[in-house]
């Protein structure tokens, strides 16, 4: 591996999600590259920080409600409805660490922005375009599009 592996690859390496050959290549690169070793050390630090954060016990029933809420936030299904931002029950320490990790990965430009353009609009445009593909998809793609349009009507 002559090129430096990018952030997601390093993250996947730490999470042991790479296949055997990629893992070997990253491991070999890590042995030779001080820059990537430093980055991996930093990532491990964030990971350890998250793992060590104090946790609180969830109230009874909250896990099930969160499961339902998070399920609604599935990107595919998000086209079906304009949903509010997800609320996630996490310890304060974990939240801070997660924010730090996000800033580390993405830079300050992707911080929470209440005026941000809703992703659903982009998904609807993409789904509508996909319906024009030469290869038909039944209504796999058109279903969420018409649902999005219908939802817009309901909101108005």
């Amino acid at each position: 591996m002559n090129q430096h592996p990018d952030g997601p690859i390093l993250s996947a390496y730490l999470d042991e999600e790479l296949d055997a050959s990629e893992t070997t290549r990253v491991r070999q690169h890590e042995a030779l590259c001080s820059r990537c070793r430093e980055e991996l050390t930093s990532l491990r630090g964030v990971k350890d920080l998250l793992a060590a954060a104090q946790r609180r016990t969830m109230p009874e029933g909250l896990a099930a409600r969160l499961e339902s809420m998070i399920h609604r936030r599935s990107v595919w299904e998000i086209v079906l409805a304009r949903l509010s931002m997800p609320r996630v029950w996490v310890p304060v320490g974990t939240l801070a660490a997660a924010a730090a990790a996000l800033l580390f990965w993405l830079g300050p430009s992707f911080g929470p922005d209440p005026d941000a353009i809703p992703l659903e609009t982009l998904l609807a445009a993409h789904a509508r375009y996909e319906a024009e593909s030469l290869v038909p998809s039944g209504d796999l793609l058109h279903v969420p599009f018409s649902a999005h349009v219908a939802k817009t009507d309901e909101e108005d």
Binding site: S74, V75, L102, L119
Partner: peptide, 19 residues
Amino acid sequence: AIQPAAPDIAPQPGAERLS
């Protein structure tokens, strides 16, 4: 700015991944 897909940018261990 575009609203991020929450699971997309927070692949923390145990978090819901983009499904």
